[in-house]
């Protein structure tokens, strides 16, 4: 075959391949937003779910998702940032560094159901906490730590060497340089890393089935004693998140308006996750612009 013709055919094939991918993904999002979007209302977003009757909402599930996100980020961000600093600033070229990198890579590619099993064994059974928010938050930390470490390391490596040298020249020690000079200039990267990680927490379900549990107690939003079992803020209560709710409604649901709840929940979930990712991009570049004055 003539090379020019082959080139034309190949170009066409690449166009078709790319179009197929974009069509599949695009129509999926459109389908979800179209079908679920019409069910999203203030009532749906705030009312508690129903077990057997129609008309339930997803209020507690949304709250649980955000609260779990908050708890797990509270643990993930400090450890992840410190770990990233170690890899970018202190790690030598030795066996220890290689072991740390191998472990991070391993953690990153563990199936989330395996992390869920580990959580069930250690955070749920051994600690005696049972299905609880805190167990779920710890399991999510295991999943997200590698990502946070990697984002931090990348952000820190992007800081120009001249800034660091200037600080060291003025007499600051290494740690002061990191705290006062390197971290502030890596801040946009850290923020977008943390937000992207949050998006993953929000969508995770397999690791939460056996750690945070598949049910929520009746929540009393006027109960502010965080150790009261009905308090929404009690970290030792079981909590069903939005992603788990979608799975559970579809596999075990008994409610008559199953499609409405599932469509609506999926649309909300997707909107939040896409929102997180877009916010990460937008905020990252905005902070970058403000801090560099460009």
């Amino acid at each position: 075959m003539n090379a020019r013709l082959a080139d034309k055919i190949a170009t066409l094939t690449f166009w078709v391949g790319a179009l197929i991918v974009i069509l599949i993904l695009g129509s999926m999002i459109a389908y979800l937003l179209y079908h679920g979007g019409k069910y999203i209302s203030w009532d749906f977003l705030t009312k508690p779910a129903q077990a057997i009757r129609a008309g339930g909402g997803i209020g507690p599930q949304i709250f649980n998702s955000f609260y779990l996100l908050f708890l797990s980020m509270l643990i993930t961000v400090p450890i992840g940032v410190l770990g990233g600093i170690y890899l970018a600033e202190y790690a030598g070229n030795n066996k220890l560094t290689e072991a740390i990198r191998l472990c991070i890579e391993t953690l990153n590619s563990l199936p989330s159901i395996v992390v869920g099993l580990f959580g069930l064994l250690v955070f749920v059974n051994m600690t005696g906490w049972g299905y609880s928010l805190i167990s779920g938050a710890l399991a999510l930390t295991v999943i997200n730590l590698p990502l946070m470490v990697r984002f931090t390391e990348e952000a820190i490596r992007g800081v120009p060497a001249s800034l660091r040298e200037a600080s060291l020249n003025l007499g600051a020690n290494h740690w002061q340089t990191i705290l006062r000079v390197v971290l502030p200039s890596a801040f946009p990267g850290l923020v977008s890393g943390a937000i992207i990680t949050s998006g993953r927490v929000f969508g995770e379900a397999a690791a939460l089935l056996f750690t945070a549990g598949m049910s929520s107690p009746a929540l009393d939003f006027s109960q502010w004693n965080i150790f009261h079992p009905a308090s929404p803020l009690n970290p030792f209560r079981p909590a069903e998140t939005l992603a788990v709710h979608i799975w559970k409604v579809n596999t075990e649901g008994l409610i008559p308006d199953l499609r409405r709840v599932a469509d609506g929940s999926a649309a909300v979930l997707i909107l939040v996750v896409l929102g997180f990712n877009m916010a990460a991009r937008w905020l990252g570049s905005k902070i970058h612009r403000r801090m560099t004055g460009t």
């Binding site: 979800l32 379900a205 992603a243 999926a266 979930l269 997707i270 990712n277 877009m278």
Partner: peptide
Amino acid sequence: ELLAGIPSVVYGYI
């Protein structure tokens, strides 16, 4: 890249 963040339950649900 944005789509890479879509939760797997959503794919299952579709």
